[in-house]
């Protein structure tokens, strides 16, 4: 973690993003209620949510940093560590495993150079993780890359999918 904290922290909520937060706040009766969308703004801006960002969000929403940390760590979709530019989530719940999801995972790990689940590739482009049901069992194996779904993935399609990522 220390490798990522050398640079001084630049606040997220300035300019357009501050405006975005203000717009979000209008939708809710309390500032606290805007916590999840505020954290999404941080994650979109920085790729992950570091402790300084939690402190900043807490200050923006009149919460305590401890409370924000509790929420960030509760939800698995908020990243508490830096991840690759392409965050690849492979569904490995039962139907997908029957359809060969484990081989899809192996193929992603091999072709991205990540080698291990949850580890970001040396070029910083990819992170591969296994996730529970993505709700697309009819299209096993589904893979979610950032916000996009790719369905009916098999191990042999993996190089082609990776080549298509920008």
């Amino acid at each position: 973690m220390s490798a990522h904290t050398h640079a001084p922290y630049e606040p997220v909520f300035v300019g357009a993003r501050k405006q975005e937060l203000d717009d979000v706040l209008k939708r809710y009766p309390t500032k606290m209620a805007a916590l999840l969308p505020a954290l999404w703004i941080v994650q979109e801006a920085r790729g992950w949510i570091c402790e300084q960002a939690m402190t900043e969000v807490a200050a923006q929403l009149d919460l305590t940093a401890a409370y924000v940390k509790g929420v960030v760590s509760f939800y698995t979709m908020y990243h508490q560590h830096p991840v690759g530019k392409h965050f690849i989530q492979v569904c490995t719940t039962s139907p997908c495993l029957c359809a060969g999801a484990d081989k899809v995972v192996d193929a992603f790990l091999e072709h991205t150079g990540c080698k291990e689940l949850g580890v970001t590739s040396a070029d910083g482009k990819y992170t591969v993780i296994e996730v529970e049901c993505l709700g697309a069992c009819g299209f096993a194996t589904p893979v979610q890359i950032n916000l996009d779904y790719v369905e009916n993935v098999t191990a042999d399609k993996v190089p082609q999918i990776l080549a298509g990522l920008k």
Binding site: T64, A66, K69, S73
Partner: peptide, 30 residues
């Protein structure tokens, strides 16, 4: 957590993570 929050009024602790991984965590820089 409640002692630090409500009696000491210095938030330093929170429950972090969830399910069977949950534990008591320190706030950032606390």
């Amino acid at each position: 957590v409640r002692f630090m929050d409500d009696v000491h009024e210095t938030t330093a602790l929170a429950v972090v993570e969830r399910g069977d991984r949950a534990f008591i965590g320190k706030a950032p820089d606390a």
